[in-house]
């Protein structure tokens, strides 16, 4: 039964382009020729993202792939991000801020859902520093402070209860 609140509008975070990326993601899968890779998860909700990058000799992201599991926001945002940064220089990707990520995503997110949206951004930033074949570095988790947005995002935990 259709319901007036379900229709797409400016307030709906599941806008058409979000659902499009969720169902038809950009470069979903693993990249055998990856030069850099990283993965991370949001322990609070179980969202997982893995990113494979192939950086070329000009310092550009020649190819960017992701794989993962989780909510619409976490997976669609990963697809949007990798589509957006492929072909950019490392410096350009490093400059791509958390604010840029949220604006790329589009619909306004509450602090708790911003964490879902920023997971792939954190993993991507981590991947730039992790050449494949080197000693495995610890995964990015939601609490990880190795790459933090300049502005503080994310509200109180969704999970604490008692």
């Amino acid at each position: 039964m259709p319901h007036p609140q379900d229709s797409n509008n400016d307030q709906d975070i599941y806008q058409e382009h979000v659902l499009d990326h969720y169902e038809d993601p950009y470069n979903r899968g693993h990249l055998a020729s990856a030069t850099h890779a990283h993965d991370g998860k949001n322990p609070l909700c179980g969202d997982k993202i893995h990113v494979d990058l192939r950086l070329d000799s000009d310092g550009r992201v020649a190819e960017a792939w992701f794989d993962g599991d989780g909510c619409v926001i976490s997976q669609a945002s990963a697809s949007m991000l990798l589509e957006a940064i492929e072909g950019k220089t490392i410096e350009e990707v490093e400059k791509f801020s958390a604010e840029d990520m949220l604006s790329l995503f589009g619909p306004q997110l509450t602090p708790n859902r911003q964490k879902c949206c920023l997971l792939s951004w954190k993993v991507l930033q981590g991947a730039l520093k992790r050449p494949v074949g080197t000693e495995a570095a610890p995964s990015v988790t939601e609490d990880d402070d190795e790459v933090e947005p300049k502005t503080s995002f994310g509200g109180p935990s969704l999970e604490e209860e008692q």
Partner: peptide
């Protein structure tokens, strides 16, 4: 029904970033 797969395709590449 809201999240069911319905043959959606991504649209054009979106412009990126601060510049």
């Amino acid at each position: 029904a809201k999240f069911a797969r319905s043959g959606r395709r991504r649209r054009s590449r979106r412009p990126v970033g601060p510049n």
